[in-house]
Design a binder for these strands. Structure first.
Lengths: 332, 332
DNA sequence: TGAGATTAGTGAACCGGTTCACTAGATCTA
DNA sequence: TAGATCTAGTGAACCGGTTCACTAATCTCA
């Protein structure tokens, strides 16, 4: 409700100092303890808050971090909101863009940010993306999920999806499954293209019949594709879904076809959605330590901002066994 | 990769104009068509993008809109990401804060924004909140879900929860239910306190035995409270949950106690979560036209920014009947 | 045709901070 | 005690746009 905004000059006047001295004092630079305390007291009393635009213009830093993600994916959504909170606690504001798994949008957004933010955190849409190409080298960049290899000064937080996939396939194999379909989508934590060759190599190494299917990134999309697939004669005995929402679609498809989970069909998810334990039967899936991931990401970003790039941090999923897998039905 | 940033001065030099003329031309002011096109062409060729900090400082507008919401609620989360996208299309960046249903956080965040953003969109945590008190009258404010009454120049997008509640209670009544428990939480679309008196009045008008229960805002929290409640002798024949995630918790509680939905217990949700149709049996709930809500919100905000406040827009939920309600079991 | 209105364009001031080059005084050191 | 070093503080320039007051040229219409 107070009329005009309180500026640094007002504080300086009240303190009987120059603008410069006041600025230094507020930041704990070039001034005695007593002065600093006095100036701070006056500033709070007057209700002074620095104008971020002026700070950005003069200081060359914006205090803004851009986050690019696909919020339709609930796992990413959760991560993003945690990161926004953590950033705020550390004195940064987050500008979040929903790029909706579209590499074009991602590139547009990120390049529109060049020079306007201190840092960029991206949950890349595609492993091959070159989205960081346009960025100033002054901008700190952290990629989550896919390493940036071509940019020496950058930092990545990578997920050990290889471990996840091999664990999943091994689990199914040991239950006796020999015919597995893997459902992936562009919106999953683990982009399909990255994982294809790996999975098929692993599978053939294990003597497992593996089919790969890409589905639309919605539960209903997955449902219809899966239903069509399961209606055929050679339907698999197990489905490994690269995100839990896909898995939910597969549950629906199974219900549509009157297949019982897990006795007729085993289902495995990925990312441990809040609802994974709620569906019937509770879904076995893979979970992450989101707190640690967020913490590592923000720490890496801030380290990079301070010109101490941190390199790579790696996280592994842990298998959460519930009740959606079982041995395959006896041969038909 | 290009070295320094391209400034307005560079464009002006290339065009043989003054900085002022260039600035006007780029914004389509005070200049001929031909000049405008020429300057724009040069600007794009040089890769010029205005420095937002400088624009904010000089122009008095920041191009930034703050959004305060509780992202743990998936319905709010969806709304927020849609709003962020729409804002971006309209030339604004969104700064999102997760206030996690905490009125204190909400107040802190919003007052920290004073003078630094052009507008604020809030999904208020509490109907009684005075969060907008600290804001400049120059800041455009749109409240979603709860009207701001004390601020003449502000705009609200309100939800007709009265209609939702009466529809729900009527539906249960007509099925024959006489004993209903209503589960609410601070994180629901419809804050509990606002609805309490209304609901009980409605219920008693209808001759319905209504009990109100407040549960923690997580599926698991709802589960344990509900399980305890249902274990008692006088358990209700129907549960009306003010958010779908609560309803999922009630499903779990029912399963824990070997109650069949809907024959032993009818369940009604609110907000039409993506998974409402996936649980078994599919959950009857209330849905909103999110696109229209987002559109109305952003339009209202932009109108307010242009000093044409729009007043109130009201949205009504639509009842989506699926299979989670049925007549109550015959008297025990 | 000539006074008044419009239009295109100019230079300088300004927004609110940060930083640089510099100074006066206090402290240290040989 | 003289000179070097350190500290707290100063004024001015600067970041990169926008806006204001003003000029010169063109247009309008009695």
């Amino acid at each position: 409700m107070p009329g005009g905004r309180v500026t640094l000059q007002d504080v300086a006047d009240a303190a009987g100092l120059s603008k410069a001295a006041t600025s230094y004092a507020l930041r704990g630079l070039k001034s005695s303890e007593t002065t600093q305390q006095r100036v701070r007291a006056i500033a709070t009393e007057l209700g002074f808050t620095a104008n971020p635009a002026a700070q950005a213009l003069a200081g060359g830093r914006t205090g803004l971090v851009a986050i690019s993600a696909s919020l339709r994916d609930s796992w990413q959504q959760g991560l993003v909101s945690m990161m926004a909170t953590t950033l705020r606690e550390r004195g940064y504001a987050a500008s979040i863009a929903d790029v909706d798994a579209d590499p074009g949008l991602e590139a547009t957004f990120i390049s529109s940010m060049r020079g306007n933010v201190d840092g960029v955190i991206a949950l890349p849409t595609a492993p091959s993306g070159q989205w960081w190409r346009d960025l100033d080298s002054a901008t700190a960049v952290v990629a989550i999920g896919e390493p940036i290899t071509a940019r020496a000064e950058s930092t990545s937080v990578v997920f050990d999806n290889v471990l996840g996939v091999t664990t999943a396939l091994n689990h199914l194999l040991q239950l006796g499954h020999r015919s597995v379909t893997m459902f992936s989508t562009t919106l999953a934590t683990m982009p399909s293209r990255a994982i294809d060759s790996l999975a098929s190599r692993t599978a053939s190494g294990l003597g497992l019949g593996l089919k790969m299917v890409t589905v639309p990134p919605s539960t209903n999309g997955a449902r219809s594709v899966a239903a069509q697939l399961f209606a055929q004669d050679d339907r698999p005995t197990a489905a490994f879904c690269l995100s839990d929402s896909i898995a939910f679609g597969v549950y629906l498809a199974a219900r549509d076809l009157k297949l019982t989970v897990p006795s007729d069909l085993s289902i495995l998810g990925y990312d441990d959605n809040e609802l994974a334990k709620i569906v019937d039967p509770p879904l076995s899936t893979f979970g992450w330590d989101e707190d640690a991931i967020v913490d590592a990401t923000i720490s890496a970003l801030i380290a990079t901002l301070e010109a101490v790039p941190i390199g790579q941090t790696r996280f592994s999923p842990r298998f959460i066994e519930r009740s959606s897998t079982a041995p395959p039905p006896r041969a038909h």
